[in-house]
């Protein structure tokens, strides 16, 4: 049985656009994400200082309680055109973006 699911957004941000990405995430995405059941657990900056001539990575770690909550999040995002529009706006500020889903690694022999 899979419990908590983590959602890892890795944004490789164009030089000079870190604050724009942070602002977009905070002011546009955050409230809707919480309404869809996502909890923000952590954010990271790498390298740990803003670069001026190279991209930085901004990483956002979210979670939902289980697979049913994951589908509730996914269904709500699918019904809201503003979510896709948000990511299109975000992608214009980024060199690359990935979203990964992570679960606890099962013990040896109990792999899925």
């Amino acid at each position: 049985m899979i419990g908590k699911i983590h959602i890892l957004d890795e944004l490789t941000v164009e030089p000079g656009r870190l604050d724009a990405v942070r602002q977009l995430m905070t002011e546009v995405y955050m409230a809707g994400a919480v309404e869809r059941g996502m909890a923000l657990e952590q954010t990271w900056l790498s390298p740990p200082v803003e670069l001026y001539d190279q991209p930085n990575n901004l990483v956002y770690l979210w979670s939902v309680p289980d697979a049913a909550a994951w589908w509730a999040m996914r269904g709500a995002a699918g019904r809201d055109p503003s979510v896709g529009e948000f990511w299109a706006e975000m992608d214009a500020l980024c060199v690359e973006r990935q979203r990964r889903f992570l679960v606890d690694d099962p013990p040896i022999g109990e792999g899925r």
Binding site: A68, R74, G78, D91, R99
Partner: peptide, 26 residues
């Protein structure tokens, strides 16, 4: 089928408007 991690953790990325690899219309 619906609750399989293979479904929501991998396949759905082709359908999900939040995923960069989405290629399937909603």
């Amino acid at each position: 089928y619906m609750m399989s991690p293979h479904h929501w953790g991998l396949i759905d990325g082709w359908f999900d408007p939040e995923m960069p690899q989405q290629i399937v219309d909603l």
